[in-house]
Design a protein around this nucleic acid. Structure first.
Lengths: 344, 344
DNA sequence: GCAAAGCGAGAAAGCGTTTTCTCGCTAGTT
DNA sequence: AACTAGCGAGAAAACGCTTTCTCGCTTTGC
C-alpha cells in the first residue's frame, strides 16, 4: 500500500519505506550510483517500479541547480523563420536530453527584456531572437542572461556567441542576379523599420549601389508578412522597377499574389525575389527565387553554442556567420523594356 | 555589498540581510502580503531593487507545488497545423501568465508516452497531440497525465477534455462540393496509415459513398507532407478521378505542384482540395479550396480547457467539437468529360 | 587477536522558496 | 492598572530531491 505523500504524488519517501531503506539509498539507486549493494538496489528498483515512482524534476532541479531546459525568445511564432529556428533548436537540444521553453513576445519589444529574464531563470540557458530590441537594452540585459546565444544580433558582452546571417551579402547577391538578367531598376520592399536584419539588408544595398551606380534602387516601406507584400503592389508598380527584392519570402509571396490579381506576369513583367527560403518558397507559382538561409541548421547550431556555454567548454567557437545561398527559381527572368511609370 | 549565496546568484537571504529582516518577511513583501509594516516593506523593496533580486522560480515551484508552465506534445513541429496549435496555445497561456514547454516526438510514436510523462511532471498540465499513438496506449497513460487535454483524440478516462475537429463531416462537405461541380470520379489521397484524423476522414467518406452510390471514390495511399502529394501524381492520374481530396493542404500543394509540372491545369483538368486552411492555402496558385479549421483557436481553446482543469473548475465544458468550414477558392471547378484511364 | 582500513547505508544538511507556528509587543477594554 | 485581544515579524518546517558527513560493520594485514 503506497503511503501517498502530502501532495498526492508518489515521492522518494514512499519508495524508501516500501523498500525498507533510506531516502538517500533510493536516490543513489535511481541515479545509478554503484556503491549500493546489488540486492538492495534490486529491492529499491522493484519498489520503484511497483509504485510507478518517477522522480519529481522540480525537487531534482533545486538540488542539482539545473533544469535541463533551455529557453528561446522569439518575436513572433507565426513567422516561419522562427518556427524553423525553434524546430532546429528543439531537435538538437532533445538529442542531449534538454527541453525547450518558448517565450513569444508577440512583437511587443518592450516586454522582451522581462520575458527573457523570466525565461532565463527557469532554464539553464537562453536563445534570444529579438530583432526589434534596441542595442542599448540588449547590452544592458545580455550579461544577466548568461549562458546566452544571440540570433542575428551581436553584443559587446563577453562569452555571448552570435549566430548571424549575412543578409547584407545575400541582398547583394540577389541584386547582382537581377542586374545580370538585365534589370536596371530595382526596388527593395523593406522589412519592419526597427528590424536589425533589415538594417543589414539596407547596408548591403548601399554597398551594392556604390558598386553599381548605373542601377536605380528604390526603397519602399514594408513589413514582414504576406499582407505587407500584398498591399505593396501599388507602390511597387509606381516605382517602375522591374526587379523587386522583397524583405523575405512571405512578403514576396504576398506581392506575387497581388501582382497576379492585377494580371501581371511574374517573371514576364516583373521579377520578384524573396529571402530565407522557407519550405513553401519552392512550391509557389512561379517558384520563388530567394536567398536561402539554412534556418533549421541555425537553430541546431544555436543549441551547440549554448551547450558549450552550459558545459563551460572554453573551446567553443564564438558564434558563426551564415552566408545565404542564391537560389534561382522561376520568379526571376530577363528584364523587359522599361514600362512607363508614374514618377519616372 | 551583496553577499552572494553559494550558487552565485542573489537569493532571498541576501535581500533579508541587506534589509535587516528575515527571509519570511522578504517573501511576504515580494508576494504583496499586506501584513507587513509599510516602512519595512519599503526597506525590503529598496534592498531587492538595489540587489536586482529576482525570485528563483525553481524554489518557488517546489514550495508552491506548481510551475506556471504547461507542456504540449506534438508529433512534428514542422507541420503548420501543430505550429498553429502551439501558437494559439502559447498566446492564450501567456495571457494568464503561463509558459509553454514543447516536446516534439518527431513522429516516433513509441517515445510519445515517455515524452508525455516527462513533460507532464515538469508542468502543471499537458496538451497532447498524438495522432499515431494507439488507443490502448492512450488509455493507459491518460490518467497519469491529468490535467490533460487531448487534441483530435478521445479517451474513456474521466476529466480529460477532447478538442476534436470533425474531419468526417468536413470531408463529406468537400466531396459534396466536388459532386455539385459535376465530378463523379473522386480520389482520396489518404494521410499516414495510423493517423487518427485520417480514420475520421475515411469514416466520413464511407458515409458519403453510402449516400452517393453514383460517385466513384478511389482510395490512394499517401502521407501528410508536400512530397507525398508531389509523388502521388502518377497514382492520381491513373485513378482517372477528376476531383481529388488531399489529406491536408500540404499534400494538396504538393499535388498541385506535380500536376503543374505535368502540364495539367487545376482546376481545368483536375480539381484539387486540401484540408486545414493553413495560412499559405489562400496564396497558392490557384488558391486552394479547403476545409478550413480554426487551428489557432483550437490551441487557444486547449488552454482554456486546461486552465479550467488546473483551477479545478467543475463547470468546464467537457471539450469541444469543431466543424470545418468549406472554403471554396480557385482550385476547384466544373468537371470536364472523363478522360481515358489506365485501369477502368 | 587486534587495530586500521574500507565500504555501504543512514542521518542530516543543503537547494530557495512559502507558509505555518509562535512569540513579543502594542493597544484596547473594564 | 491589569488582562486580553490583535497584529506584526522572526523561527522553523515543509516542498522533493541530492550529497556530504558520519558511523557501524566487515574485512584485511600484521
Amino acid at each position: 500500500m503506497a503511503r501517498k505523500s502530502a501532495s498526492g504524488r508518489i515521492g522518494i519517501a514512499d519508495v524508501a519505506v516500501k523498500a525498507g531503506v533510506s531516502h538517500a539509498t533510493v536516490s543513489r539507486v535511481m541515479n545509478g550510483n554503484f556503491t549500493v549493494d546489488p540486492d538492495i538496489a534490486a529491492r529499491v528498483r522493484a519498489a520503484a517500479a511497483e509504485l510507478k515512482y518517477q522522480p519529481n524534476p522540480v525537487g531534482r532541479s533545486l538540488a542539482l541547480g539545473k533544469t535541463d531546459t533551455i529557453g528561446i525568445v522569439v518575436p513572433d511564432l507565426a513567422n516561419p523563420t522562427f518556427q524553423a529556428i525553434l524546430r532546429g533548436l528543439s531537435r538538437a537540444a532533445a538529442e542531449d536530453g534538454y527541453r525547450v521553453l518558448i517565450a513569444d513576445s508577440f512583437e511587443v519589444s518592450s516586454e522582451e527584456s522581462i520575458l527573457a529574464g523570466e525565461a532565463r531563470r527557469r532554464c539553464d540557458g537562453l536563445v534570444l531572437c529579438a530583432p526589434r530590441m534596441s542595442d542599448a537594452e540588449l547590452e544592458e540585459i545580455a550579461p544577466s542572461l548568461h549562458p546566452l546565444v544571440l540570433i542575428n544580433r551581436t553584443t559587446a558582452a563577453p562569452h555571448v556567441p552570435s549566430l548571424v546571417v549575412d543578409y547584407g551579402q545575400g541582398v547583394q547577391d540577389i541584386a547582382g542576379h537581377l542586374v545580370e538578367l538585365g534589370h536596371t531598376r530595382l526596388a527593395f520592399l523593406a522589412g519592419p523599420p526597427r528590424s536589425a536584419s533589415n538594417e543589414m539588408r539596407l547596408k548591403g544595398l548601399e554597398t551594392f549601389k556604390a558598386a553599381h551606380p548605373e542601377v536605380q534602387v528604390t526603397m519602399l516601406e514594408g513589413g514582414s508578412d504576406f499582407d505587407t507584400g500584398h498591399e505593396a503592389v501599388d507602390a511597387v508598380l509606381a516605382s517602375g522597377a522591374t526587379g523587386i527584392l522583397a524583405f523575405n519570402d512571405l512578403v514576396a509571396m504576398g506581392l506575387m499574389s497581388g501582382l497576379h490579381e492585377r494580371g501581371l506576369d511574374v517573371p514576364g513583367d516583373i521579377s520578384v525575389t524573396g529571402f530565407d527560403d522557407i519550405p513553401f518558397a519552392k512550391y509557389t507559382t512561379p517558384a520563388l527565387t530567394t536567398g536561402a538561409v539554412p534556418i533549421t541548421e541555425l537553430g541546431e547550431q544555436a543549441w551547440h553554442q549554448l551547450r558549450a556555454l552550459i558545459r563551460k567548454e572554453e573551446d567553443g567557437t564564438p558564434g558563426g556567420r551564415y552566408h545565404p545561398r542564391l537560389e534561382v527559381r522561376a520568379s526571376t527572368g530577363p528584364a523587359k523594356a522599361p514600362r512607363s511609370t508614374v514618377h519616372g
